[in-house]
Simulated scan of single mutants.
Amino acid sequence: MSIRSGRRLSAVAVTVATVTGTSALAPAASAKTPEPTPSTSVTPLSAAGNGSVTILKKDPDGVVLAGATFTLLDSTGKQADSGTTNAEGQLAFQDLAPGVYRLKEVASGSPLYEVVDDQDVIVTPGADTPLTITDPFEAAKVLLQAKDDKTGKLLSGATVNIGTGDSTLLTMTTGAKGTASGELPVSSRKTQFWVKEIKAPAGYKLYSPSKSFTAGPGTPVTVTVTNSKAVTGSTSPVPTQKPTAQPTSTAPMTGDSAAPSESPTGHTAMDTGSSPAAGVSREATPKTQAGSLAHTGTDATPWLLGGAGLLVAGGIAIVVAARTRRSDRDENSTPSNG
């Protein structure tokens, strides 16, 4: 009851002061505090002194990314909040007590992107902390092969550099199976790379041309270099035996009247149609072909030599006899002096 009367008296005093203009009652009117007008921009009393964090998620090309999941941990490692970016790539953590938090990207929301490293975020009283996070592209999966350019055989020991522009991004060497694998960082959805061999496999020439290829984020790509064998000497084949001027065939040569034949006794028969001298020449130098098989049976060489000697001796005797007869005729035909 006393509270209600207190309120009535106060109201009467305000009325009197207004009508009479008496300054003595003015202080009673100023003691009344007007109620604040509600506003949506004013932070609720329950969040007074707290702050917030707003995330904008993009890729290296500037495209906003939806579906990325983040977790916010307080200074004790306890989860303070978590959420996923919307279609505009945004996520807000509100009503956070001031302090240092740890922001962790749990998932990128796409196989084309990698998550960023954890980072610290400072929340200040009554303020919003904006963060723009750019997820890098997922690295391309590279398979290197070195092959023989003729047979296609995989070769070990080939070393190549792979890069873009003036930068070398990856160095690979083929192993025992002739292959090597690695991850190649990409900066766009389609990135142009070059590959150059800096060391050839043992026994092979260096693959001097520089090849180029295109790779995308998270996609596998195969790079192949081919090597030709190094020349160690003359390429002409080395003969396995000395060439012979004579044919290896045992058939009679064209133009011969007949080949010597063996008699039933094993002696070489003479060609009766040829002169003795021709017979001697033919038998003394038999045309034995190189590479022919050896004859079987009795060797006729001694008989041939003996026959040749008899023929020579008979020829000499005939010549001597002819000269003797010529001399006798000359003597008989000479006239006597008497």
Rank of each mutant, 00 (worst) to 15 (best):
G51V: 04
F70H: 02
P44I: 06
G67R: 05
A48C: 13
Q79W: 11
D59W: 05
N50P: 04
S52M: 08
E35H: 10
L56I: 14
A48S: 15
D74K: 00
D81W: 05
V64T: 08
T37M: 04
K32N: 06
I55H: 03
K58W: 10
L73M: 04
S52K: 09
T43Q: 09
L45H: 15
A48G: 09
T33F: 07
V64W: 12
G83V: 04
T54L: 10
L73A: 00
T40V: 14
T33L: 09
K57R: 14
L45G: 14
D61H: 00
G77C: 03
G83T: 06
D81L: 01
V53T: 05
D81S: 04
Q79N: 09
A68V: 13
T69I: 09
A68Y: 11
P34I: 14
A68F: 11
S46Q: 15
V64M: 07
A66K: 02
T54E: 12
V63D: 01
T54Q: 14
T69K: 09
T40F: 13
L45W: 11
A47H: 15
A47F: 15
L45K: 15
P36H: 05
A31V: 03
N50D: 15
D74T: 03
V42E: 12
S82I: 09
G67W: 00
D61T: 02
T69E: 12
F70P: 02
V53E: 07
G49N: 01
T54C: 06
K58V: 08
A68W: 11
N50Y: 15
S41C: 11
G62R: 00
T71S: 06
V53L: 06
